[in-house]
Design a protein around this nucleic acid. Sequence first.
DNA 1: ATGGTTGCAAGGCAA
Length: 158
Amino acid sequence: MKIATFNVNGVNGRLPVLIRWLTEAKPDVACLQELKAPDEKFPSPAIQEAGYRAVWHGQKSWNGVAILARDRAPMETRRGLPGDLDDAHSRYIEAAVEGILIGCLYLPNGNPAPGPKFDYKLRWFDRLAAHAAELLATGMPVVLAGDFNVMPTELDVS
DNA sequence: ATGGTTGCAAGGCAA
């Protein structure tokens, strides 16, 4: 199974590129980040025309994630990362496709550091690790794909 | 000289 991830930086503004990529690369599963669109503005008709069904967790202006599956419907198992009921960012959605559990994530950028946004990022990492451990414990095959925003050096820290 | 980019969405924010 071909599983891909794509930070689209605006799913509607990038729609022609997204559709062309789906048509040419034909991934079985595609994880999208930075939809930058609320749920009602997710372009599901165009995506369906390209042969994909989708589940999505949108948000106005920022964030937003989606899981696309070719010729089949992803079965949503979760939206939102557990561990913080006050986290209103749309950064995680999870679905089963052909017996594989797909987690699509958009981890916080965290800049500037130090600061509250960086603290939020570190907490998000912890929550992700905790949830990943739970998924592993189920014994199901799991893929966690997306934009992890990992900064190996200080170069990306502002 | 506090410069330069982009998307969303309608001014400023986030990346």
